[in-house]
């Protein structure tokens, strides 16, 4: 922003290099623009004392999410904290998926990145039920899914561990967000966002289930937002939604919403771009 009169000295070991600096500003420096204009208003007899109302006052700085590839910006601290906690708090360091809770992150790491688990799973029940407090274990992914659907009344179309599939991306998305978009279901933040009343255009595709087409998604979004306004109606709504789930004309819009705590596996959003490779 300002031309330096002194060069900062390089320090090789420390990444910190703050040195107090004096700034000499030339006549045409940008910092002087407003003052110069004001001066010439005075010279041209346009000086006016009580003109404070229509001046732009400095606004509060915006907070940004610092996760690379995430361009969310907030003006309220709570919004940021909520965003960080729900999207970037529990992130798998191997595949950079974001999971909604520490427990699900642990489960994810075991099942996806732990070779011991893979070996043990061949001989014993290793797949934990996703519902907290249930404690049951299953031999396969499929068994667990059946259990979740039968006992815990999960919607059968809930994508527990479906293989990754390609999906056409929303045209407004920037290239760097394509990856995120392809990892479609992202109900962790999707339903929460609706809850918060945030309606970011970019989020549309993500917050909808896979089988809802883009066009429908856009239409349904508003309705879903209204429907979800009642707060955590999600779970019970999802229970009733099973039969409607695959019909092409979804009547209760909230039928596509899935409880926030059960996002898992490939359905999870990627917290980071993989571009930079794994950290360390």
């Amino acid at each position: 922003m300002i031309s330096l009169t002194e060069t900062t000295e390089e320090q090789s070991e420390l990444p910190f290099n703050f040195v107090p600096q004096l700034f000499h500003l030339h006549k045409d420096h940008d910092l002087f623009e407003d003052g110069d204009v004001h001066r010439h208003m005075y010279l041209q007899d346009l000086y006016c004392v009580s003109e404070a109302e229509d001046k732009s006052t400095p606004s509060i700085s915006q907070f940004a999410c610092h996760i690379s590839g995430c361009s969310a910006v907030f003006s309220v601290l709570e919004e940021y904290e909520h965003h960080y906690n729900s999207l970037h708090r529990h992130v798998c360091c191997s595949c950079r998926r974001s999971l909604p809770s520490a427990r699900l992150l642990d489960v994810h790491i075991q099942e996806w990145h732990d070779s011991l688990f893979t070996i043990l799973a061949q001989t014993q029940d290793m797949y934990q039920c996703l519902v907290e407090g249930c404690g049951q274990k299953f031999r396969t992914n499929k068994d667990r899914k059946d259990h979740l659907v039968m006992i815990h009344k999960y919607p059968p179309d809930f994508r527990f561990d479906k293989p990754k599939k390609d999906r056409r991306t929303h045209e407004t998305k920037k290239p760097q967000q394509i990856e995120t978009a392809m990892e479609v279901v992202d109900d962790t933040c999707g339903s929460e966002r609706v809850h918060d009343g945030l309606s970011d255009q970019q989020e549309l595709g993500e917050s909808m289930e896979t089988h809802v087409s883009e066009e429908e998604a856009a239409q349904n979004y508003a309705a879903a937002a209204a429907a979800a306004a009642g707060g955590d109606a999600g779970l019970s709504a999802a229970l009733h939604s099973n039969k409607h789930a695959n019909s092409e004309m979804p009547k209760p819009q909230y039928s596509y919403r899935v409880p926030t705590t059960v996002c898992f596996g490939h359905g999870s959003v990627r917290g980071f771009r993989g571009r930079r490779g794994r950290r360390k």
Partner: peptide, 22 residues
């Protein structure tokens, strides 16, 4: 001047920086 003349507030901050630098 923060609210009435933000440009002047900025310039004041610049002077304060130069004053405290060394």
């Amino acid at each position: 001047y923060l609210h009435t003349q933000p440009a002047l507030a900025r310039e004041s901050a610049w002077v304060l920086n130069n004053l405290t630098a060394h």
